[in-house]
Amino acid sequence: MKLTLKIWRQKNAKSEGKIVEYPIDGIDGDMSFLEMLDILNDGLINKGDEPVAFDHDCREGICGMCSLFINGEAHGPDRGVTTCQLHMRMFKDGDTIFIEPFRAKAFPVIRDLVVDRSSFDRIQHAGGFISVGTSGNTQDANAIPIPKHDADTAFDVASCIGCGACVASCKNASAMLFVSAKVSQFALLPQGKVEAHDRVLNMVRQMDEEGFGNCTNTGACEVECPKGISLESIARMNREYLVASVK
């Protein structure tokens, strides 16, 4: 496969960036998208150029490190995958591929395609936990039976990998899907209910402070989420927050 890549290059957070075009050849459908970028980078290094910086780590779709806005979609055109699981068979010979960083005020660019998502961490610091010690001297794990449906739903939302695709896809750069996933996980479990109200208020406050946009229910996040987190969790957070605010 022969492709034309249009990649955002930016030296550091302070400098201006621009789209640079790179032709690339010999790409196989079995390669992952990031392996295609590896080949590009190897070529750049051999030519004496600086490689394109992009975040990646586990390359199996679970660490949430990889990002990339590919041809107008977070994690590219495939569904239910991260960029590292996107395979080149999704593209055709001769395609032009735009590769841009996730864009949001709360995700400033560090270099090229690498963005700083520590705003997500700070939201979690504000309340993404259950306040129990780590002594292990808690009650027996089976002391509170949890309905399977609740446990399964809590798991579904807990499978969020914090990649930020929801923010990148949202026309408002809203972080609601991410925040609501964590709020939902704990709100669904009896252990988390105790401090559910404080949690949702604190996490939303931090989310607002970080400069994310507002949710306008377009549903783009749900479609682009590699882990299939549903809008239901946003509604659940809306509910939790409403109750917590009027209490």
Binding site: K6, W8, I19, F69, N71, G72, E73, P77, F98, E100, R103, A104, K105, A106, S169, K171, N172, A173, S174, G211, F212, G213, N214, T216, N217, T218, G219, A220, V223, E224
Partner: peptide, 29 residues
């Protein structure tokens, strides 16, 4: 809300494909 939302993404994308994931009306309220 619209002003805030605009501020939340100061630099836009060069290439967008919004119809892949959302309806026109929802994006143009």
């Amino acid at each position: 809300l619209t002003i805030q939302n605009r501020k939340a993404r100061p630099i836009g994308y060069a290439k967008e494909n919004p119809s892949a994931n959302s309806h026109w009306a929802s994006r143009n309220m």
